[in-house]
Design a protein around this nucleic acid. Structure first.
Lengths: 133, 133
DNA sequence: GTATCATATGAACAAGGATTCATATGAAGG
DNA sequence: CCTTCATATGAATCCTTGTTCATATGATAC
């Protein structure tokens, strides 16, 4: 009988993976950490937020400038900036009535950089197969 | 009058950002690329998929082993594996009735690695403020 | 062929989230 | 104070998406 399965109806396989499962289970980070990691990527998973972060690569911008740049209304941008700020990815400063946002650290750059490279290489690979075919 | 606004009701600001906007707009990648980038991170933004990828860090696994590991049913895992495969993040091989999945390249490792580090440093910072307080 | 196991897939449902609208806050100028 | 501008926020809506259930495919063994 499979080693780990009769206590859970989700585990219905007839295979016996006990050895593999025990090993992998041991190496796996905690659920909490993995959920936190997914939540971090969730922030990068919206194109509006990506655009905002890219814009802030250059220099700090106020809310209405970002809204104008992206052609979206101020409220939408404000909501997304809150999301980014809650995740410590952007910070802001007030100057009179205006509030300027900027990237809060270099993690944004390095995280986006990795995705960027992945896409570039995918596009390269695609081009390759096209010229080969 | 602000330089770029009367053509678009979303651009209602009284500020004049023309210089800044022109500069940033010029530096910004295309919409298509930014959307593609967001879509890539979207794949990392689900904890089930993250867990699958982490499991495959160790070695290849068949569908039912992953399901057993995560305590989820086979269908859910299969759907997510399809998502990962469509994004070229995992690949598979058949051996009889069983299909084994593995990471398809090292981008998964490097992308997850960046997020990993970000979280670790955040946790460090948190610990710091706690001991200071 | 039929039965069984491993996986894939389509439809349906539920939960989450991005945007918009309306409104609130908060600062500066008069 | 009152007005205006810049931003924030809450509620409502619509769209996306993860999971489940039921079923299909595809391979092996008999």
């Amino acid at each position: 009988m499979a080693a780990c399965c009769d206590h859970d109806k989700n585990c219905e396989s007839k295979h016996d993976h006990s050895d593999l499962l025990n090993k992998v289970k041991y190496e796996l980070p905690t659920d909490d950490f993995l959920i936190e990691l997914a939540d971090l990527y969730k922030i990068f998973s919206d194109s509006t937020r990506i655009k905002i972060m890219f814009a802030l690569f250059e220099e700090e911008m106020c809310v209405c400038a970002i809204a104008e740049l992206l052609g979206m209304n101020q409220s939408a941008i404000s909501h997304q900036l809150k999301t980014l700020k809650d995740a410590n990815l952007v910070a802001n400063r007030r100057d009179g009535k205006t509030i300027y946002y900027h990237l809060s650290d270099d993690h944004v750059r390095s995280i986006i950089g990795q995705g960027f490279e992945h896409l570039l290489e995918d596009h390269e690979a695609l081009k390759q197969t096209r010229t080969e075919g």
